[in-house]
Design a protein around this nucleic acid. Sequence first.
DNA 1: ATATTTTATTGATTCCAATCACAGTAATTC
DNA 2: GAATTACTGTGATTGGAATCAATAAAATAT
Lengths: 239, 239
Amino acid sequence: MLDLCQCGHCQNDMCIHKVPIFSTLNEEELIKIAGLITHRNYKKGEIIIMEGEATDSIIIIHEGSVKAFKNTPDGREQILYVFSDGDFFGEQNLLSHQTSTYTVEALEIVKTCMLSKNKFQSLLHQYPEIAIKIIEELGERMSRLENALQSIGVRNVDNRIGGILLDFKDKYGRKTPEGILIRLPLSREGMANYLGIARETLSRKLGQLENEGIIRSVGNKSILILDQEELKALSGNVF
Amino acid sequence: MLDLCQCGHCQNDMCIHKVPIFSTLNEEELIKIAGLITHRNYKKGEIIIMEGEATDSIIIIHEGSVKAFKNTPDGREQILYVFSDGDFFGEQNLLSHQTSTYTVEALEIVKTCMLSKNKFQSLLHQYPEIAIKIIEELGERMSRLENALQSIGVRNVDNRIGGILLDFKDKYGRKTPEGILIRLPLSREGMANYLGIARETLSRKLGQLENEGIIRSVGNKSILILDQEELKALSGNVF
DNA sequence: ATATTTTATTGATTCCAATCACAGTAATTC
DNA sequence: GAATTACTGTGATTGGAATCAATAAAATAT
């Protein structure tokens, strides 16, 4: 995003610059909001919000990535979202009296910005555009959840794996001469928990895709996409 | 909801009376909005919105119920929501430039109220509380989707069936001396498409639950819940 | 650089739900 | 109310992914 700020006080790395929900505001308004924000950092593995807990702030990620998950009755974890720079969470608690519907855990060192319930609510009344931006963002998240739910209706596991790789490509991919290199935010186990399948099944399927020349594993934390079209076909995404 | 309107013009069955997103407004404001609304009825089986289609209105259900679903690549349908009185859809198209993420089909005779894009947007700017109400409602829907996604991570199918019965109980249940009688909005096939399982599997599992004395089928369109606690245990819902 | 721990892969087996096939039941239509 | 049509239930079989078990590879610590 273009940085319009020329003043001495305003840091260029202010988190609000990164956050889509504030994107309709001008620099002056942003500076005002920046003053309302508090910061906090987390180490890898630290819990930021616990499922069922009430929070009193909306939390915006300034840097790093987190996973949001639920613990299933049988002791596994089902990952619902992976949030990174500019994403927010905790908004449910501010508007309704809901407690958090998921646990949020840092996947690496994470810097967050927090805006307290009261400040955020008055902001919403002052700038309806922020509310509209939030509705838009929630709409996108719902759309992603809906797709996830659909791909489960399709019992085919390959389908889901194709989907997650394409998702990660958009968010974490980098073009290289050989193909698009994805720096994975999750381990194999994490990805399996995202897809709702067993770790071993994921390994096998990824191995298969590698044999077919569609992808290549690069260490444990990266995957190179060699044939994006084939992946799209696999994911059943006809659009 | 209490009907405060005493005037001659205002119909008591105005849809906006039923709609939570307008619940913060006073009677005068409601009457103003009522004038902006157009109506349309649908027969069972009629398509209200098609996936991928752009619409220019938010649609509120005044009476009846609908299913919102996606067609999976392998030709099945995955139901995402069942909407009834007071629920709305089509809001994605108004705020972002998204097209509909699902198809909506009437499950019975349905009466709808529509508010056009332009009118709705100016309303949002005028009454930020409406936007906040929408955020709340979307939050609840997301919470439901998240639960659905979780219960898929749990491979156990009984779990999901318990969940859908408890959901339907809250929305469509009626207390009787024998237990809570649910008037099902969906056929067995519909329920199976909601759960993402085969129709036959659902039949078998429901039969099992009946043998265990937890439920009783009453014709094809109703189910009597005899042992709600056992159902909760089954659904793994510890909260 | 080596040792230790963590994470990932591969193989063998089991099990649950999908599918196929058909019979039974309920709901419409005439 | 009989006939037709749509929906639902049950049995037999198959298949794909989970689980169990062990090895291999990678990341981290020493």
